[in-house]
Amino acid sequence: MNAAADTAEQVHQSTWMDWAIRIGLVAYGVVHLLVAWLAVQLALGDKEGQASNSGAMQYLAQQPLGGVLVWMIAIGMFLLVVWRLLEAAFGYQDEQEDSKRWRKRATSLGKAILYGALGVSALRVALGSGSSGKGGTDSTTAKLMDLPAGQVLVGVVGLAIIGYGGFLVYRGWSEKFREHLDAQGQAGKDGSAYVLFGKVGYIAKGIAIALVGVLFGYAAITHEAKKSGGLDQALQKVLEVPFGQVLLIAIGLGIAGYGLFCFARAKHLSR
């Protein structure tokens, strides 16, 4: 058992794993740039594409060589899953406090699940089984509603999503994300630009995710699954508020900043 653990730890710390992480981060950055593009297009009146991760995959698949690129994104996401699972199992050995170590490992496991969901979405689109419909989230919420205490469960999910969005906003505002860049990646004019991308990116992504949580919360209060929704529906709701078009464009540009930060992190990886 110890030999297997030592082997896994060596893999986790290996040079090829660094390259796998870089490839995955580039793929993750591409997804965010596509979501940002679709969000801006939505703000400008184009409602054909979904401003969401799955919508981004479908949009990319329709472009020249898009099928190949979707496959590459799927592979990149699954590489990130492997990294995060190894991190959840063997990472943070230098942490002195057990509670802090296990909290970080749990966070890594959660990120593995998120990357895995995106990887599966890309894989489904690559295989031609990705749906262009917008009822997936409604259907999932309806199933939760049908469970015992389902209304409460949907509300808890909404609060958890809002909490995660708030956490991203906090990381952006406090610049905690700097730890993901090596010293060179934080130095000079390039470093200042990378930090700016990260700051606006984390804040914008956090706001967008929190809006999804608000929709879940509203669905729980009204007991109507159709009131919930994914990122695309949340961004459409932004258009209904005063200056919504300007706000949505700002969120789109912010999400693009997060995508660019992923590229910077891939170049100046610190883990």
Rank of each mutant, 00 (worst) to 15 (best):
N2V: 13
A4P: 05
T7N: 10
T7E: 11
S14R: 13
T15A: 14
M17D: 00
W19T: 07
A20C: 15
R22W: 03
G24K: 06
G29I: 11
L34K: 04
W37F: 08
A43S: 10
A43M: 10
L44Y: 01
D46Q: 03
K47E: 10
G49E: 10
N53K: 12
S54R: 14
S54E: 13
G55S: 08
A56H: 01
A56M: 01
M57R: 15
Q58L: 15
L60V: 11
L65I: 02
V82I: 07
W83L: 07
L85W: 11
L85M: 12
L85F: 10
L86D: 00
E87L: 15
Y92P: 00
D94L: 07
E97A: 15
S108K: 10
G110Q: 09
K111C: 00
A112T: 08
A117W: 11
G119T: 03
V120T: 02
A126F: 05
S129P: 05
G130A: 10
A142I: 09
L144R: 06
V152H: 02
G155A: 06
G166L: 15
L168G: 01
W173Q: 12
A183Q: 06
Q184I: 15
Q186G: 11
K189V: 05
V200F: 09
G201W: 06
I203F: 03
F216L: 12
Y218C: 08
A220F: 04
H223R: 09
K226E: 05
G230T: 07
L231Q: 09
L235C: 06
K237T: 07
P242L: 09
Q245N: 06
A250M: 14
G252M: 10
G252I: 04
L260E: 08
A264W: 08
R265Q: 14
